[in-house]
Amino acid sequence: MATEETKTRKKHMEFTPMTPETTFQYADLNIKHINPENTLAMVKRAIRMGYDTVAINVDLGDIADYYTELDMLWTPGNKSNVDGEPPKKKKKKNQRKDELADGIAGILKKKLIPPPHFVDVSQLDFSDLEKRGKVFRQFSRITFTANEQVVINKVFIHPTVLSYDIVAVRPGDSSVIDTLSRKTELFDIITIDHLEENRGKWLSGSKVMDRIRNDGVFYEIAYAESLMPATRKNTLFNGRVLIRSLKSKNVIICSGAETMLDLRSPVDVMNMSLLWGVANNEARKMISGFPKNLLLQAECRGTGNGDVCSMKLSEAEKMAGNDEDEKEENGEEEDVGNEDVEEKMETVKAPPIDVRMNVSQYKALLQATKNANDMMKKIKSFKAAAASSSSS
């Protein structure tokens, strides 16, 4: 069973492409939410440019400025009881009272983490996407800067953070990267936007970054900052160091747009990737293939992590509705058609464990179990026939 630490995100996302009409092409997973009108205008422009998937990003900045579950556990520096103090420690009483007052005042200054934002799809025009056979998808994303390791321990299990589809972290120090490498199941993206050159020295730490990448976490480059003269140098430098360290694997390029002028079409983004030394055959993956893998990974993280169950083959056969072995033992034979098998699969009882999957995935699992059982029966019958022929 899953522990309390492996809490699942209560997300709305349901991305898994089950049918051909839900094909995935281009994605911009970083459209920053400033106000509803501006966000709606940017999403409309992104659809006209050819994007069929967008993520509305709520960027908090430094997460230490926001109220988290860690603040509920705040105590003064000395945790002993104030009332039962001996007379010798009267001076420390006042000190602890001041610390308590300062701590409460600091908590009251903090802000609440905002909920996810979605645009109203009824105000969007999908005619261009329908002509190309595409389906529009929007997801929610939260991004924050982590400068302290202590904050990370509680922010990922905050109820509001768990409600977002995608969680992105902006590391502020190399020590934070070490902590994130042990918590890769709790977030999806490491972004390097707003990183100064002297704060991005951890980008060259290939061993830690490879370990994070192998766990399914993606790295992000926001090209909107490369369009501004003030941040162009650092953005290009950090991006080249990142791509060189990761060899262009698990790197996505997003806009990070705050205004409509920051958005670029998918073709322009692929051409712009040459500034970071990306090869032509790798550029398309960074706005199409890797974002698709990221969304699938994020959807998987919304299920119960660590739920593992083993069962006997006979129990799996009962799950799939295959009771031919029992009938053979009783001397009964019955020809079952495809329609009867489908009816049995529809009326099969629920599995003895809490399996978090949709109906199509569950039916596919049952069908795969049935096929495996049929194969085992054919192998047994072939071996029996071979043994009888050799004996004769």
Score class of each variant (00 low, 15 high):
residue 113 I to F: 07
residue 206 S to F: 03
residue 291 P to D: 00
residue 27 A to D: 02
residue 23 T to I: 11
residue 337 G to Y: 03
residue 275 L to Q: 15
residue 330 N to Q: 13
residue 147 N to F: 10
residue 160 T to G: 07
residue 359 V to H: 11
residue 20 P to F: 04
residue 114 P to Q: 01
residue 124 L to G: 01
residue 238 N to C: 14
residue 55 A to R: 08
residue 382 F to Y: 04
residue 319 M to I: 14
residue 184 T to M: 12
residue 359 V to F: 08
residue 35 N to R: 09
residue 219 Y to A: 02
residue 231 T to M: 07
residue 224 A to P: 10
residue 341 V to Q: 04
residue 207 K to E: 15
residue 301 R to Y: 08
residue 275 L to T: 10
residue 210 D to G: 03
residue 295 L to W: 02
residue 285 K to M: 08
residue 287 I to G: 08
residue 164 Y to A: 00
residue 177 I to L: 15
residue 340 D to H: 05
residue 66 Y to E: 05
residue 159 P to F: 06
residue 181 S to H: 04
residue 186 L to D: 03
residue 173 D to P: 07
residue 148 E to I: 08
residue 132 R to V: 00
residue 237 F to E: 05
residue 177 I to Y: 04
residue 209 M to W: 01
residue 24 F to P: 04
residue 27 A to P: 10
residue 7 K to T: 14
residue 325 D to C: 10
residue 332 E to Y: 01
residue 244 R to G: 11
residue 238 N to S: 14
residue 8 T to F: 05
residue 152 I to W: 02
residue 96 R to G: 05
residue 88 K to C: 03
residue 281 N to I: 10
residue 42 M to K: 14
residue 370 K to P: 02
residue 90 K to P: 01
residue 2 A to S: 15
residue 316 A to S: 12
residue 209 M to N: 12
residue 129 L to H: 00
residue 23 T to V: 03
residue 19 T to P: 03
residue 92 K to Q: 14
residue 290 F to M: 07
residue 357 M to R: 09
residue 264 R to W: 07
